[in-house]
Design a protein around this nucleic acid. Structure first.
Length: 262
DNA sequence: ATGGTTGCTTAGCAA
């Protein structure tokens, strides 16, 4: 049975990351890739080098910030930008598509900026909206993957220091409660299913030598519905992608599944 | 240590 590799990566600017992203694609050849923070409006999306490599691409972006995309080696069906067909979201943070017989969702959950700020309230509301939307439009019985930058570390083992992070953005009790409600839709945290050990991170701040000090957070996730989780054979965080020239501040998370969905 | 760095909209915001 062939393997199906599903990756998620907050690239922090697809155009700034293009050389590095293409080298990564050429090395790993993942079947499906979810991207966040493409930071490019659709008319300027760098589609050609991806198409040359055989990828179908769906994308939903805007000028300057946000922006999500889904790449696939198979045809992409029923792409949906935002939450409802025909409803234009001012912030381009979610894109769904069916490919390789999986409903794939690429999500960029709001950062939240500062506890108590308007953006923090927006983050909590967005998480709740996502959870409600899943309940209304999807079922845990279908093969589904929610992938992206969740901007929340789910548990103490997902932050470099509980003492430093408790009550901070990314590890605030309200965020973790909202995330727990989302998980209770029926998700399996695919990385944690294979790796119980603490302090394995997917993001490190560019500033103050955070990567060198391993002061990171595990905020990038691949969450799967039970029928897809049943096919998983592994999941890894590609820490080495934080090294070298012009890294994103996030690294890819890659899950591998038995490709037996048809 | 309220700094530090990066990408975008090249100045200031978002992260």
């Amino acid at each position: 049975m062939s393997a199906l590799r599903l990756a998620t990566w907050n690239v922090n600017g697809i155009r700034a990351r293009m050389e590095r992203f293409l080298a990564w694609l050429d090395h790993h050849h993942p079947e499906i890739v979810c991207l966040q923070e493409t930071k490019v409006e659709d008319s300027l999306f760098p589609l050609e080098p991806l198409a040359q490599r055989g990828y179908q691409v769906a994308f939903s972006g805007q000028k300057g910030f946000n922006g999500v995309a889904i790449l696939s080696t198979a045809p992409i069906h029923q792409p949906l930008a935002g939450f409802e067909p025909g409803v234009d979201e001012p912030e381009k943070r979610i894109l769904s598509a069916t490919t390789h017989n999986i409903r794939v969702i690429s999500a960029y959950i709001p950062n939240g900026q500062a506890v108590g700020s308007d953006k923090f309230a927006f983050k909590l509301a967005w998480l709740a909206r996502l959870t409600d939307w899943l309940g209304q439009h999807h079922t845990p019985a279908e093969p589904l993957a929610l992938c992206g930058d969740f901007n929340v570390a789910p548990a103490p083992e997902d932050v470099y220091s509980v003492e430093a992070m408790e009550g901070e953005v990314g590890f605030h009790p309200q965020e973790r409660k909202a995330l727990e409600r989302l998980r209770n839709w029926g998700f399996v945290d695919q990385f944690r299913a294979f790796h119980p050990e603490p302090h394995l991170f997917s993001w490190w701040d560019y500033r103050a030598g955070s990567f060198q000090k391993n002061k990171g957070l595990r905020i990038d996730h691949i969450w799967t519905s039970p029928p897809l989780a049943a096919l998983a054979t592994g999941c890894d965080i590609q820490r080495q992608e934080r090294e070298g020239e012009k890294p994103s501040d996030h690294v890819p998370v890659v899950a591998v599944f038995e490709n037996s969905l048809g």
